[in-house]
């Protein structure tokens, strides 16, 4: 059988520590709260019948389709969170206008690049959130994520030189720093500060973090 090219990262998955009971309980509470919120939004009115109905549905859902464990060591910091969202909205608008201009500009074929960015905090949550934020902004698109090294492979449009590649890489690391500042633990935040200039991702094999 030919090796499955879809999941090259799978065999090198690092062993993840099992979660403690408290973390499991907290994850479940967050999931139930989220599902009940969606249920109430669906019905459109906040009544006790809706809340109880939502709780029943959420419990059944989580029993039938259990969620994969997520490690979340930090806590939510409101001010950096606000800063992250404002910057995200700004990026969204700026990038959308840029791509629209790129499309309408006559006689111009945009060039692009596929860039590997090695994140400094290698947790599933950080990897997912950074990838989501990058994907939502037009102009950058996640092609592949390598869990073992915490590396994202990003396709970027409108990149013309190596300089711009490096600038984009720095931009992604700044985005990661904003996310960690918003939801990371103090341990993760120290790590982001210490590794201000991460090694260039030529050594993707690298030492395990």
């Amino acid at each position: 059988m030919k090796p499955d090219q879809m999941t090259p990262a799978e065999p090198t998955d690092p062993p993840r520590r099992p979660l403690s009971r408290a973390a499991l309980r907290r994850n479940r509470i967050i999931a139930v709260t989220g599902l009940v919120a969606v249920w109430i939004l669906l019905w459109g009115t906040f009544t006790w019948a809706n809340v109880i109905g939502g709780l029943v549905v959420a419990t059944v859902l989580l029993a039938v389709f259990p969620l994969p464990p997520v490690t979340f060591a930090g806590r939510i910091h409101p001010l950096p969170m606000l800063r992250f969202w404002l910057r995200f909205l700004r990026d969204l608008v700026v990038a959308s206008v840029q791509i629209a201009w790129m499309a309408l500009r006559p006689g111009h074929t945009p060039r692009s690049a596929i860039i590997a960015v090695r994140l400094r905090v290698n947790t599933d949550l950080n990897l997912t959130l950074t990838a989501e934020a990058l994907s939502l902004v037009p102009g950058s698109l996640i092609l592949e994520a390598d869990r073992s090294t915490g590396t994202l492979f990003v396709h970027v449009i409108g990149v013309n030189s190596r300089d711009e590649v490096e600038r984009f890489r720095r931009g992604v690391l700044e985005l990661e720093a904003r996310i960690i500042a918003a939801i990371g633990s103090s341990d993760e935040q120290r790590r982001v500060r210490e590794v201000a200039h991460p090694p260039p991702p030529a050594d993707l094999e690298g030492v395990p973090t």
Partner: peptide, 19 residues
């Protein structure tokens, strides 16, 4: 031909080589 750089190709080659 329109790519400035392709750092995913190198990564996939390395994985295939290791395999």
């Amino acid at each position: 031909d329109l790519l400035v750089t392709d750092e995913l190709a190198a990564h996939l080659d390395r994985i295939a080589g290791a395999r």
